[in-house]
Design a binder for these strands. Structure first.
Length: 279
DNA sequence: CAAGAATCCTGTCAGC
DNA sequence: TGCTGACAGGATTCTT
């Protein structure tokens, strides 16, 4: 799915165009995605003023007047398509459409339907069941080596798996965990409880730089992801290990010195790493 | 408890 | 050209 950089990129695109607008209508094309939509959502959104946007982990929060926030999560295959209002041509897997009085049309497309939409009081953004347990924002000051060390202490699971846990740090996904561990020179197989200390001190800036670079590139774009305005992100061209099994990493000369980037599996998910430079 | 597997769902791609 | 199986950016829920 969209991981933090993609969600951030999408959110910025939405904010630039929709902030200050007013919702003319909202239309649901089914009753649920991962969970049922809140009852009466269409009517509750009609006429609402869009005050602004924020991101928490991989969640987008659209702040509305009346003290409400619309929560959007893109799951694995979700996309938000933003363009001029048009006759309601059928777009496959478009489950939710929102139109503004200013002439914008926002479509939520999600073939696999792992995404989520909810409406909550803005004051509940820290207590909502999907948001309450999220760990620190990796690009803010609250994400520190000391805090990360505490979160990893005593955990026997591989660091790769631990970093995918949104309670440890919010927003990393399968691509950027591999990329950040490569950047930090830490093996994904290393038990999480051995990371606190010097390795955590390397990991924090590695995570930050990985995400910052990706946001600067406009997020990665895979099959199921495009930015709201339809442009593609370019960070996928900058992946150093993800999807590069068998290739030499940028630090290594290749065989026989280094066997190249390896693919392995943690908890059923692909991991890519260099066994020579990541320890 | 913690860790790993199963699960939700559809699309794509490689191999035969 | 089909068909089949593996795999895909997530995260909860179920088992062990």
């Amino acid at each position: 799915m969209p991981e933090l950089p993609e969600v951030e990129t999408v959110m910025r695109g939405l904010a630039a165009r929709l902030q200050g607008g007013r919702i003319a209508r909202a239309v649901l094309h089914r009753a649920d995605l991962r969970w049922p939509f809140p009852p009466g959502l269409e009517a509750q959104l009609r006429g609402a003023r869009i005050l602004g946007f924020r991101r928490r982990g991989k969640y987008i929060l659209m702040r509305l007047d009346g003290g409400r926030s619309l929560l959007l999560h893109l799951g694995m295959s979700g996309r938000l398509l933003l363009g001029p209002a048009r006759p309601n041509l059928p777009t496959p897997h478009e489950h939710f459409v929102l139109e503004t009085e200013q002439g914008w049309r926002l479509g939520f497309v999600d073939p696999r339907r792992f995404g989520a939409i909810d409406l909550l009081p803005t004051v509940a953004e820290t207590t909502h069941r999907l948001l309450a347990a999220l760990g620190p924002e990796p690009l803010e000051d609250q994400f520190t080596a000391a805090g990360l060390s505490a979160a990893l202490a005593g955990r026997r699971t591989p660091i790769k798996t631990a970093l995918l846990d949104q309670r440890v740090v919010a927003g990393l996904g399968n691509i950027y965990v591999s990329e950040a561990l490569f950047r930090a020179g830490i093996s994904p197989n290393r038990s999480a409880h051995t990371v606190p200390g010097a390795r955590a001190a390397r990991l924090v800036p590695a995570v930050r730089e990985t995400l910052t670079d990706a946001i600067a590139a406009g997020g990665s774009s895979l099959r199921d992801y495009v930015q709201p305005d339809g442009e593609l992100g370019y960070f996928q061209h900058a992946w150093k290990v993800y999807g590069r099994a068998g290739l030499a990493c940028e630090h290594c000369p290749g065989p026989p010195v280094c066997p190249g980037i390896r693919r392995t599996v943690h908890s059923g998910r692909s991991t890519f790493y260099c066994s020579r430079t990541q320890r």
